[in-house]
């Protein structure tokens, strides 16, 4: 099925495409038929820099299984990083980079 459901969050960081690093401020996350990956459905993430007015994106399309593994790996890496660097995981982002909310279309 085609889906109009999308999660939209504000993020802070950079993403690299080709030789170029770029600042990103927004991530769109959705589950639908992919454009390129040979899957029936995929978890897609588009990273944008909306503040700069950019229309470019850095995109990934992942199988549902690998997306869940990625999500778990991110959480595991954050936990290990917090332990090794003595920094408690943040329950909330600073207001300046707080999630902008979920958008269901």
């Amino acid at each position: 099925m085609c889906s109009y459901i999308m999660e939209k969050i504000r993020v802070f960081g950079s993403a690299k495409a080709g030789d170029e690093w770029r600042r990103i401020d927004t991530a769109h996350v959705y589950f639908d038929h992919p454009y390129d990956a040979p899957l029936d459905h995929a978890l897609s993430i588009d990273f944008h820099n909306h503040a700069a007015g950019s229309r470019e994106r850095v995109a990934v399309e992942l199988s549902a299984e690998s997306a869940r593994e990625l999500a778990n790996a991110i959480l595991a890496a954050l936990d290990r990083g917090a332990q090794e660097h003595g920094e408690a995981p943040r329950a909330e982002l600073p207001a300046s980079i707080a999630p902008a909310g979920m958008f269901h279309y």
């Binding site: 109009y4 999308m6 769109h28 229309r55 994106r57």
Partner: peptide, 16 residues
């Protein structure tokens, strides 16, 4: 301008 997949991503971000 842009590739069809980028155009689709922009349309999606506006709710289709």
């Amino acid at each position: 301008p842009g590739s069809p997949d980028d155009c689709a991503a922009r349309a999606r971000s506006k709710g289709g």
